[in-house]
Amino acid sequence: MYSEKVMDHFQHPRNVGEIENASGVGTVGNAKCGDIMRMYLDIDDNGVIQDCKFKTFGCGAAVATSSMATELVKGKTIQQALEVTNKAVMEALDGLPPVKVHCSLLAEEAIHAALWDYAEKHGIKIEGLKKPKSDIHEGEEEEGEDY
């Protein structure tokens, strides 16, 4: 059911772990399925993400999107990192099955939550970043055919 890229990132997830004294940490939970993701960012003085790590309690897609998301934001500026949407992560993974689209939102929201934490700690405001919800509620529904 998963693409090869998803399976690769699931089997060999990049950047698993924690960053001590991280610049920003974000934890989000997925109300749809109960899964949880925590993202750690190490951001230098120029606002460039030097390192990124994650921990995930979730399905294969959640692990793979976490892994891919950390890869995508590493080396990026904060503004560039904001463009790492769930769509971007999914594309980088060659897609996800429809029922798994919501999982990729976890990664996007976890990045946002970590950036928000960073902004709060440093008393700055990041253009275009909204306060993350603790729970993710949206996500594509299958067309109105479910039972």
Partner: peptide, 29 residues
Amino acid sequence: FIEGESLLIMLDMEGICGSSGSACTSGSL
């Protein structure tokens, strides 16, 4: 502390087929 679907996929890699009551494995979530 762990989630069922991930467990199933990893077991599958070893040729072991099981199932889970995890939301993540079902269409219904």
